[in-house]
């Protein structure tokens, strides 16, 4: 089977890779590019552990073919912190202990950031609906929702201060 040559921008870096035509974007991120932050929970779009942004919209990378990424931009969990400075969503997940095993966390953080980039003042209901595609089997979601609400409050403050 002929491998496909793909050019895309991943976390701001122009990236080239070769992939099998049937490989998922998640396969390439993890196995070819060694960006192993995105996780494969279910491989069927139900759990959201592989959430990344594709051209600025969050998607399950297990349900994107890597070949589809030609000319597109991809943002993964590895690009969320700025160097050693955590994004407020990441910081609040730590402060609120919004994780236990951590497997779902990268997906939750990418998804939560995607919400707050669009809407820095979500209601709790909006947060819960937005995150309905991310499953966590440890926390019971409550701490996650509180961390996201608190991160939103912090981002609003930063914005007014700036």
């Amino acid at each position: 089977m002929n491998r496909i040559h793909v050019n895309s921008t991943i976390n701001g870096d122009v990236t080239e890779f070769l992939c099998d035509p049937g490989a998922s974007l998640l396969d390439v991120l993890r196995d070819t590019l060694h960006l192993t932050g995105s996780k494969e929970g279910c491989g069927s779009g139900d759990c959201g552990a592989c959430t990344v942004e594709l051209d600025g919209e969050m998607v399950c990378s297990c349900l994107v073919l890597a070949a589809e990424a030609e000319g597109r931009t991809v943002a993964t969990i590895e690009g969320v912190a700025e160097g050693s400075v955590l994004h407020p969503v990441q910081q609040k997940f730590l402060e609120h202990a919004a994780l236990q095993c951590g497997f779902c966390t990268p997906g939750f953080i990418v998804a939560a950031k995607s919400l707050l980039d669009r809407n820095p003042n979500p209601t709790e209901t909006e947060v819960r609906y937005w995150l309905a595609g991310n499953l966590c089997r440890c926390t019971g979601y409550d701490k996650i929702v509180r961390a996201v609400m608190d991160a939103a409050a912090e981002l609003r403050q930063e914005r007014t201060a700036a």
């Binding site: 779009g45 959430t51 919209e57 969050m58 998607v59 399950c60 998804a111 595609g133 991310n134």
Partner: peptide
């Protein structure tokens, strides 16, 4: 349909 992730596709 599905979640935001699913509907974005």
């Amino acid at each position: 349909i599905g979640s935001v992730q699913v509907r974005n596709r």
